[in-house]
Amino acid sequence: MTYAIETQALTKRYGKNTALDGVDLVVETGSVFGMIGPNGAGKTTAMRLLLDIIRPTSGSATVLGQSPITGGAALRRDIGFLPGELLLEGRVTGRSLLKHYAEISGPVAPGRIDALAERLGLDLTRHVRTLSKGNKQKLGLVQAFMHEPKLLVLDEPTSGLDPLVQQEFLSMVREAQHNGQTVFLSSHVLSEIQNAADQVAVLRNGTVVKVGDVASLRASAVRRVVIDFTDAAADDIRTALLALPQLDNLTVADGEVIQVTGTVEGHIDALVKAIAPFHVVDLRVEEQDLESSVIDLYSNEANK
């Protein structure tokens, strides 16, 4: 097995502040690897290290078999990068800007830019500074994908994109994978990348908390449930639910509508079966924001 990205104890400190703390990651060639974590977890720092925009304090990284520092410009021609905060300015059209980036990246096949722009619904004749955030993001995606690089490094690629374009983006990722390209992407929301990524690493405070496939991560994710009942006794419901080991933080608010809230770790099967005898008016299962589910993951890891 070859690795498109391999890091060993990769560490980046800014003064006393540790942005990335001894991260070991391997991304298999041809895979789609997601990195999730709250803002400030170190996702962007890790990506900048891979592109030699910043240098590690200690540890090392290998990208496409080379160190980003010694690989230099030639290595970066084989990478397509989308920065997390894409700032595009200037009185130039999208087409002219992309032409410039094509000149300083790997060779771009004729017609490729137009094909990508059309897929994403991006107007290349407009001046860059007049573009909305979503359209700038599309421009950023085009410049990352256009030279069909061996490795795509995409920081929060779906941010600002509407759901239809997100779908198109996911199909571009799948095509890239089909072509043998490797995709390394980040998000602060698991749901945005769960359909794309084979493997996911959860980052928190600069360390990798967990690595696994999406299914196993989802199974261990903590979700918040809200259930409304009518025509039932609050005490009966409480008794039935207290018996469930997966359910925590239970509250039962009595009234005409009895509202039950709680958090569920893992599958919700047992919960659904436990409430089946009662009259359920509404059932909402919400994925917690990643901040809290990562905290749960983190504390679970610490307790084991």
Binding site: R48, L51, I53, G72, R76, F81, P83, L87, Y101, I104
Partner: peptide, 17 residues
């Protein structure tokens, strides 16, 4: 400072260039 240097650096150009 505007943040656009990052994207240029991520391409196939060296700092010296």
């Amino acid at each position: 400072e505007s943040g656009s240097l990052e994207l240029t650096l991520a391409h196939g150009v060296s700092r010296v260039q």
